[in-house]
Design a protein around this nucleic acid. Structure first.
Length: 702
DNA sequence: CCATTACCC
């Protein structure tokens, strides 16, 4: 085996680690940092006083790297070298090197904030800036200041943000380890193409007709574009003059592709045949395709972002960062020198692209993270001042606090409640963990567990409505249940109950077009939730199915009531004359029920007056995804709570904050909400009044 | 009229 570049730096690395508590390592692709750093430190005795923990943002990476290291050390996986990912702990008493996902390490620090068993923690792939890694960086900074034993922290990062990370960790030393990549020639476009799809197509054909053999990896933004490109490229290649160039196959590669189609990219093509792989950013880090010599980089990626002022997610096509562009280019140089065609100009690269991807922490709802931090047994933790590498906006933190307050996770002073403490133990979004706790009081915990587990698997469950799906299939899939008119949550519940009755037969899923992967995941989540809830459960946790309609109606009633409490900040009221809804949050939004919803209109063609929604997302328009009808009388107490909310108090803002700039922000955001055309706080009074009147009017009609 | 991807002892 050729020597990994990092091994030449062993002395330097060890020496630096010995002298410093934190070290940033810039390890370029192929440097071997993920497998070698831990072994080096192990060789030098760092496993005598504790474990070396190496975090990874992805499960597969944690498993495969652990496997490799075990092999290199000649030990059984799970003995001296092990891994821990959700649902799977392959470590033992003897484990000295432990690979784990960043999320698992966060969970561990919930029960032991000092992470006492570790002598070294390596945060690998920190440049990816996953939400969990960012929180871990903040916690590590606290730990190295506070923990009495000498914990060593290593952070691996990318060239472009190494300085920033080093600065964050008290100007700690920064080591650069070169990678082992073949040179990749970068070719820029002369201008930015009007249609990047056409430009991809043209570049692909150019490569095919002019360049020597080697596979082509094309980075696109999503499934739709990929499918278009695949069919157009197939057609073009087919129309090329016979014998003018080698054969070609075109393969799509994206996350919603069933696994059996995904693995096609790992099998070698027949000789004298070029492969084109049209992929999303899944091929950037998660999957490595061998044989790639040419990369076509559209320069774009689809990204999910959260807007804390509206509570809305959106899915936007955005420019990639320089780090991402380099990562994409690197995919061409794994087996021999390659070429990367960037469909943008070098000026775009230099001046337009951000150095690093906007960290997830600045693009997500922070309710879960804030609850997590509040639940840690750390004194003097001030959420608004928590030391993040890139702090989220105060607006985003305040949004999280408001949400947590409305679901009783924190009290009016911003302190975590007993309910909040229990919620933090559950690996769920706060709205769902709150629902579980409430359902436990109403005696419908079993149903709530199922709903929470189903919603955790989200998108991977039901089939997207594909255009030609019906033509290709011999039999139409069996219709899934309809949620008894209450909406998507109840439908999800019914689907799982039916599957349970079929003894979790995977063919049952296939017949109904339910993704097997997703359903098995739901089963695992449910099991894990059961284990956690066991201590406090007031009823049976087993899946069971009601025997008759009357019985299920009563159960659904309680479940919906629990959902209403859990989703207190995700309520919407139907508008009078049509089926649009207005959200009942701080800034009301006009939204539609997502077309994929199973919610049924009544005889008058109207949807339920009040619904809770799992998520707001703007795609072509703002939609509520996964809705459940709720009763108006459950909504009223929540609106009262909204009315009396004081953000200033929640954020711990009191007299001592008045001189701080933070205070200005708090006041500003309140002012914005209070004033203008949508006077929210007063508006809620009106809303309550209006809702009452309508409720009474309807009741009278019946 | 609709989705990228990854993740939680």
């Amino acid at each position: 085996m050729a020597q990994l570049p990092i091994l030449q730096f062993e002395e330097k690395i060890i020496e630096t680690v010995e002298k410093n508590q934190v070290v940033v390592i810039i390890g370029e692709t192929g440097s071997g940092k993920s497998t070698q750093l831990s072994q080096m430190l192990h060789r030098r005795g760092y496993t005598k006083s504790g474990i070396i923990g190496v975090t990874q943002p992805r499960r597969v990476a944690a498993v495969s790297v652990a496997r490799r290291v075990a092999e290199e050390l000649g030990v059984q996986l799970g003995e001296e070298v092990g891994y821990a990912i959700r649902f799977e702990d392959r470590t033992s008493e003897r484990t000295r090197i432990k690979y784990l996902t960043d999320g698992v390490l966060l969970r561990e620090s919930l029960s032991d904030p000092e992470l006492g068993q570790y002598s070294v923690i390596i945060l690998d792939e920190a440049h990816e800036r996953s939400l969990n890694t960012d929180i871990l960086m903040g916690l590590m900074k606290r730990l190295i200041r506070m923990r009495s034993s000498n914990l060593k922290v290593l952070i691996t990062s990318a060239t472009l943000d190494g300085d920033k990370v080093s600065k964050f960790f008290f100007d700690c030393p920064l080591l650069t380890v070169p990678g082992k990549l073949y040179p990749v020639e970068i070719l820029y476009s002369n201008e930015r193409p009007k249609s990047y799809l056409e430009s991809c197509l043209k570049t692909a054909i150019d490569i095919h007709t002019k360049e020597p053999e080697g596979d082509v990896l094309i980075f696109m933004t999503g499934q739709d574009d990929i499918e278009k490109l695949v069919s157009k490229l197939e057609e073009k290649v087919y129309n090329l003059e016979e014998g003018s160039c080698m054969d070609a196959v075109v393969l799509p590669l994206h996350g919603s592709l069933p696994p059996e189609l995904q693995v096609r990219v790992f099998s070698r093509p027949p000789p004298n045949c070029r492969r084109f792989i049209a992929a999303t950013n899944i091929a950037e880090t998660s999957l490595t395709v061998d044989g790639v010599v040419y990369v076509i980089d559209s320069g774009y990626v689809k990204q999910r972002q959260y807007n804390p002022s509206t509570g809305m997610y959106s899915l936007d096509v955005v420019q990639i960062s320089k780090v991402q562009a380099n990562q994409r280019a690197g995919r061409a140089g794994r087996t021999r020198p390659g070429k990367c065609y960037r469909l943008y100009t070098s000026m775009d690269y230099q001046e337009d692209l951000l150095d690093v991807t906007v960290p997830e922490i600045q693009r997500s709802s922070l309710a879960g993270s804030v609850l997590y931090l509040k639940s840690l047994d750390l004194p003097d933790i001030d959420i608004l001042r928590f030391d993040f590498l890139d702090p989220p906006t105060s607006e985003s933190l305040e949004d999280a606090l408001k949400q947590l307050y409305l679901i009783d996770a924190i009290d009016e002073n911003g302190s975590i409640t007993k309910i909040g403490q229990t919620m933090a133990e559950l690996p769920l979004e706060p709205s769902l963990s709150r629902t579980l706790i409430e359902a436990n009081e109403y005696g419908c915990i079993s149903h709530a567990l199922t709903v929470a587990a189903m919603l955790s698997a989200e998108t991977t469950l039901l089939p997207g409505r594909r255009k030609n799906a019906d033509k290709k299939r011999k039999h139409r899939p069996v219709d899934p249940p309809d949620g008894s008119g209450w909406g998507d949550h109840i439908q999800l519940l019914q689907i799982f109950e039916l599957w349970d009755q079929e003894n979790y037969d995977v063919n049952w899923c296939k017949d109904r077009d339910l993704q097997v992967r997703g359903m098995l995941f739901v089963k695992d989540v449910r099991k894990q939730l059961c284990q956690i809830m066991q201590k406090i459960a007031k009823g049976s946790l087993d899946v069971w199915t009601s025997r008759n309609q009357k019985e299920s109606r009563a159960e659904y009633w309680n479940l919906r009531k629990a959902l209403c409490v859990g989703y207190a900040n995700q309520l919407a009221e139907r508008m009078i004359h049509h089926n649009g809804y207005r959200t009942l949050s701080f800034k009301p939004q006009v939204v539609q029920v997502h077309p994929s919803s199973v919610m049924k209109p009544d005889e008058d063609g109207k949807f339920a007056d009040y619904v809770v929604y799992h998520e707001l997302i703007t795609t072509s328009r703002p939609f509520m995804r996964n809705v459940c009808a709720v009763q108006v009388e459950w909504v009223m107490p929540i609106l009262n709570k909204v009315k009396n909310l004081n953000v200033n108090k929640l954020s711990g803002g009191s007299a001592d904050l008045t001189s701080e700039p933070m205070e200005g922000n708090v006041k500003d955001s309140l002012k914005k909400e209070d004033g203008g055309t949508t006077p929210t706080l007063d508006g809620h009074d009106n809303k309550i009044q209006a809702a009452r009147e309508r409720f009474l009017a309807r009741k009278g009609k019946k």
